[in-house]
């Protein structure tokens, strides 16, 4: 079965899972997302770029206490693609 290749990569999969688990419209702080996933800045940045190019996530920069912070949220297109991806995974597993 064909799976969405953009999402079907361990780090990107967990990024999407973390973002989709939040309430719609919520955004995750880059630093906290990095800590949650246990990846480096560069690694996370590269995967975020890939997901952003696919239109699955959006990023927003804000200044908090005069420091730039990046917040990442899932788009409706990304949420739909992720749900489709999860359905595809479930379809692979034997039906109970």
């Amino acid at each position: 079965m064909e799976l969405n290749e953009t999402i079907h990569q361990p780090v990107r999969l967990r990024i999407m899972a973390a973002l989709v688990a939040l309430d719609p419209g919520s955004t995750f702080n880059f630093v906290d997302l990095r800590g949650l996933l246990g990846v480096t800045d560069g690694n996370l940045g590269a995967h975020i770029l890939k997901l952003e190019e696919a239109g699955y996530i959006s990023t927003k920069k804000k200044f908090i206490a005069r420091k730039p912070c990046t917040f990442i949220g899932v788009t409706s297109k990304g949420r739909a693609a992720f749900e489709e991806y999860v359905d595809s995974l479930k379809a692979i597993l034997p039906q109970k």
């Binding site: 361990p10 899972a17 973390a18 973002l19 688990a21 995750f28 949650l36 995974l89 692979i92």
Partner: peptide, 18 residues
């Protein structure tokens, strides 16, 4: 099937942590 099962576990864990 093993990959799929692992991926679903990863999704659940990442979601819970988030």
């Amino acid at each position: 099937q093993r990959d799929a099962s692992q991926a679903l576990q990863d999704i659940e864990q990442a979601g819970e942590k988030a």
